[in-house]
Design a protein around this nucleic acid. Sequence first.
DNA 1: AGTATTAACTTGCATTTCACAAGTTAGCCT
DNA 2: AGGCTAACTTGTGAAATGCAAGTTAATACT
Lengths: 118, 118
Amino acid sequence: MKSQEFDWRSACPISSGLDLLGDKWSLIIIRDLITHGTRTYSEFLESPEQISTNILAERLRMLTSMNLIERVDPNGAARNNAFQLTPSGAALRPTLEALGNWSQKYLKSFHPEIVSLD
Amino acid sequence: MKSQEFDWRSACPISSGLDLLGDKWSLIIIRDLITHGTRTYSEFLESPEQISTNILAERLRMLTSMNLIERVDPNGAARNNAFQLTPSGAALRPTLEALGNWSQKYLKSFHPEIVSLD
DNA sequence: AGTATTAACTTGCATTTCACAAGTTAGCCT
DNA sequence: AGGCTAACTTGTGAAATGCAAGTTAATACT
């Protein structure tokens, strides 16, 4: 079980950001927290992208260990203890907005169903 | 060999962007083209992140099929025929800048070697 | 003109990550 | 106290990735 051990590929900030968040799920979790404020484990599972439970648990652990998210009640039990963004996680909003804007503009031809708000 | 077939997980633009670019390598290729203008296959291999040849070839094919990059000489042979960004690929610059800025600000404590410019 | 060199790949295989289904644990409710 | 269910964990097969080696064809060299 390796928690916050990352093999940083280089000193480049972009590549380092991707070392952390460059996968299909981490930023989906951040997006859900940006749009909903807080989310419990089972609420994450309700998102249309259908993350699987083991991946969700691992990503929540990882994002917590990297201080992007935290429990709403830090000392409470897990049950119904939602997650929320830390300042660090919340600071990803511009990145997600930029990506969303790009997708709307350049992905419509490949994916006509794409919508304007998530 | 499936080219531009994607299983879009939802109609959300953020998730759709990640369907395409949510991996460790695609945006590294875009970054190299943003910072260098054009790059040949072997120049991509020289980047410090050390992409492997099969992944590079597949991503170049994918990014080409999605019209984010193109050959500098569209009808020329492959040898020394560099790649460049299309308008679509170039439009990812704000996304990468946002991610790079975030990383510089919030990843330094975990990755002290991180630099300001790539 | 013929040969050597090398850029741009492809192929095969081991390793890691991921997806899917099922099982487990522990708060909470009545 | 017994059942329900949120929050996970575990197991297994499939897919993606990493690594080393091999192939092809355009250019360079003599």
